[in-house]
Design a binder for these strands. Structure first.
Lengths: 339, 339
DNA sequence: TTGTAGGCGTTATCAT
DNA sequence: ATGATAACGCCTACAA
């Protein structure tokens, strides 16, 4: 029962107008939901639209309206393995799902490291109405200067607070880390160490800060700090140093799960049992956390909500609404068997 | 040293023409790399472009040229957890990276289950020049009828071969499963079972077929078959049934890693040791495989290459080149400690 | 090799 | 409430 369609010949607004016996302007009004059209005309036009199976041409529309109804999601190429990081995948998911509920389309852009200017040109070429920039741990806000020409929403706070260029959505790294530390304290650990992340990345800084304030606040020593680069190997190395420095330690907080995994293996090879001898807590609740041995206590990061929130914010921005410059998403401590 | 730019006022082709002292047509030729322009003029125009920081307007361009330079990547919403499946994430990654090297833009579309027609309208609305459709395990080619109006490339073969609508890229499920079975046979297993996937999904069918042909071909019984739905729980259940039916079994091939994990836990609770008593092999080499206990022997699926291949194929198609209807990507047996 | 001019499908500004 | 009629920025015969 479908009206037969001429493949390759898309019906135009003009054809709809002819069939409905009205002008193109009127059809345009109906299509765009203008209130100033009489009900019967609306009906006639909609019938014509349905009969012809008309779909407005996006290019023509945006050329005339100077809006694209498209949003870019920019992710760094990062060694060509973007989605290996579940964090990115989740953020993209959250953004895509949110946008699917709007009239906006999501243009996924992998930032080319070969031609970094390509992204800039794309953004400036009138391809999108706004962009979501997710820079993971790095705090890279190198697109900040574009926010004058285009609404931008960043994921993660900038490394340099001065650079605070418009909107950001961030995870509450500090409180998350604080909760992890507090959990260690509350469960009776007294000699607590941390494997911190790089201090040139905001999450690295924030998580260390959250940890230290709680540990120090509990009257415990917060001198047991070693640094890693968020990889499992670096976590293992840091754990070994920690054990060498303080064989008596009974708790450790790693700034992410990968490093916590590394710590787990280092602990195993040192003959310490977890959590009996040493409790370990990670951060992220990534895919490996639940199936680690033992299952890892960690701080869950709302990554898909981060993507969703970024998208929502940008949409509001584009609608001309006011939005708060920075929103911080809460984390959640997930207690498993490693602590 | 940057030329100052008027924010909000994008330079047009006309402005470039004026500055370079040529006509708009000539500028257009230069921008599009037409060979029929004298070198000095090319230079002058490029200088003007650089000076003005000109970027062609995509909407105008596609309105005039009737091409969008955009490609849609459609993924099923699947319970709103699209990217929880590493397979999707990888496919998207492969496609995005490949497309980043071309002049095409990737529009990520989550197929709305609320309004399935939305996707169809989008595809037909002249929004993209072609589309990539990834349907994972389901073999759903419900967009097949659109391939007359728009170049389409599917990921995974259709369930019904008759429905074979144009291009597909698929993983060699049959050979992969055969390799897994062969490995079991070669390592001395004699009573081999399989936990098959749903038989209404192509990979479920193909993997079972690959398994059976090898086992039967080796002169062994291939009667030990139980079915799961690709979840860990179903794998555990199937494993229990298998153990009840044939306590003497010494090898099992699960049609995916999740089910293999389930089998692992069922085996553990039955007091069988892996691989001493029973060898188990999975399929996918997903994120959990390497960290399972014991690390899982499995068949690696080239998922990001699948995305890449799909993209390459579509780009060629759009360039008017001939491409083979179906390409099959090879798999690789990854031997770990579970066999 | 370069310029002229018409058109791509909508939106938006005027009138009516 | 509805209808002409310009734009919108670029491409592309066709002409020179």
């Amino acid at each position: 029962m479908m009206a037969s369609v001429q493949p390759g010949q898309a019906p135009t607004l003009e054809m709809v107008a002819a069939r409905a016996g009205v002008s193109r302007a009127t059809v345009s009004r109906v299509v765009n939901g203008s209130p100033k059209v009489s009900p019967d005309v609306v009906e006639a036009v909609q019938a014509a639209i349905a009969a012809l199976n008309y779909v407005p041409n996006r290019a023509a529309r945006s050329l005339a309206s100077r809006r694209t109804q498209a949003i870019a999601l920019i992710v760094p190429e990062s060694a060509a393995r973007v989605f290996d990081d579940p964090f990115f995948a989740s953020v993209v998911q959250g953004a895509a799902l949110t946008l699917a509920g709007t009239e906006y389309t999501l243009n996924l852009l992998i930032e080319s490291e070969l031609d970094p200017d390509k992204t800039r040109r794309y953004l400036l070429g009138g391809n999108v109405d706004g962009a979501l920039v997710v820079s993971h741990h790095t705090g890279d806000h190198s697109f900040a200067h574009l926010s004058r020409s285009l609404p931008l929403v960043f994921g993660g706070r900038p490394l340099d607070p001065e650079e605070s260029s418009g909107c950001t959505v961030d995870v509450d790294n500090e409180h998350g880390a604080a909760a992890a530390a507090q959990h260690l304290v509350d469960t009776g650990r007294r000699r607590i160490a941390t494997i911190a992340g790089p201090q040139d990345m905001p999450p690295g800084v924030d998580r260390l800060h959250g940890f230290s304030s709680v540990v120090a606040g509990a009257g415990l020593a917060d001198d047991l700090v070693e640094y890693g680069d968020f990889t499992a190997a670096s976590g293992a190395a840091a754990m070994r140093k920690l054990l060498a420095r303080a064989p008596e330690l009974d708790g450790v907080f790693a700034a992410n799960d990968q490093m916590a995994m590394g710590a787990l293996s280092a602990l195993a090879e040192a003959g310490r049992s977890v959590p009996a001898d040493v409790a370990v807590v990670g951060f992220d609740d990534d895919r490996y956390a639940a199936t680690a041995m033992p299952p890892l206590t960690t701080v869950r990061q709302p990554s898909s909500q981060m993507g969703a929130e970024m998208a929502r914010k940008l949409v509001r921005l584009l609608a001309g609404e006011d939005v708060e410059a920075a929103t911080i998403l809460p984390t959640e401590l997930v207690v498993r068997q490693s602590s």
